[in-house]
Simulated assay, not measured.
Amino acid sequence: MGIVLGPNRYGKAETRLVRVDRDGDAHQIKDLNVGVSLAGDMTDVHLTGDNAAVLPTDTQKNTVFALARKHGVDTAEGFGLLLARHFVASQPTIRRACVTVEEYAWDRVPVTGHSFVRRGQEVRTARVFHEEGRTHVVSGLRDLTVLNTTGSEFRGYIQDEFTTLPEAGDRVLATEVRAEWRHRDADGYWDASYAEVRRVLLETFAGTYSRSLQQTLYAMGRRVLEERPELCEIRLVMPNKHHFAVDLEPFGMDNPNEVFLAADRPYGLIEGTVLRDDAPAAEEVWR
């Protein structure tokens, strides 16, 4: 039985880039965290230590800054595409590139055109996979915290000798949404698409009577695909941020579903994918 080298990749993780556009009195700012992962003819470097095919990760970091200066940063997706295509086109030993981008939003303080305040915890994300003849773009968001104070229940589940959870006919449903959606094409109107997907996710969460968080997840993903024809797949990760009604009877008080303990851990973790039945496979972009 032989031993061979399996799939491999390497790159530069978490390059923090801030690009300021100073054209005019009202400045624009892009605040990104960029990850680069490359694969190709890397057998020799693993087996013998021959670095002739290796583009140093420090060079990858410098490329992020240089292309931001040369081309600017329009969107997370657009910048990811620019980088991925550059690495594959410029280096003959690089066959595949995957670029991930996190974007942190800032709002302008209206007193001046050059003062900003960070916008909450929510993060916009993008993932670009590119090789010759094939490109996939995945947009997304994370840390989108949402909560319904009613319109949710959880009952009818398996109960065994270890079950202590009482059924709930009216509960608080809270989660921190992480969603990523794959585009049919590698070129698109990224900002408009992002805004609409975010809107649909929020509206569906708010408007769905939930019998389980799984049902809510599927409803959110399904509606995104129904309303956004440019997308072919969406993956959602939704931890259940439990809110337990506090027992106030020891103090001679009732609790008509008004006072809760917000427990941060442990928590239920719900994950799922919703896709069109004709969606082309693209598992490599998710790894």
Rank of each mutant, 00 (worst) to 15 (best):
H114N: 06
L144F: 10
H46C: 10
R95N: 09
C98W: 12
R155G: 11
V111R: 09
P166Q: 08
A39Y: 05
Q60K: 03
A168E: 13
G156P: 01
R127W: 03
V54H: 06
D160G: 12
D143W: 11
Q91P: 00
R134N: 06
W106K: 03
T48Y: 11
R118K: 11
W106Q: 04
G156Q: 07
L67W: 03
H136V: 15
T135K: 05
E153M: 14
E77K: 01
V101S: 01
E131Q: 12
R118A: 14
V88A: 05
T145W: 13
A84V: 08
L141D: 01
G72H: 02
K61G: 03
V128N: 01
D143Y: 12
M42L: 15
T59W: 11
F87V: 08
N62C: 08
G49A: 12
K70C: 08
N148E: 05
A168H: 14
A66C: 05
A105W: 13
A68N: 02
R155A: 14
N51Y: 07
R134W: 10
E161Y: 14
E132S: 13
I94W: 04
F87A: 07
T57D: 03
T135H: 08
V117S: 07
E153N: 10
L55S: 01
G120L: 06
G40A: 09
K61L: 06
H130L: 03
T63L: 05
G151R: 02
Q159R: 13
V138T: 09
L47P: 00
R95S: 12
C98K: 15
L38M: 03
K70H: 09
R155L: 13
Q91G: 03
R95T: 10
P92N: 04
E103Y: 05
A89N: 12
E131Y: 04
P92I: 10
G40H: 02
P56M: 08
T112I: 03
Q60Y: 04
N148C: 11
K61R: 12
P110W: 07
G156E: 05
M42F: 15
V99P: 00
E161I: 14
W106A: 06
H130G: 03
A126E: 01
P110K: 04
V111A: 15
V117Q: 06
S139Q: 13
F79D: 00
T150L: 04
G169L: 09
N148K: 15
T145P: 00
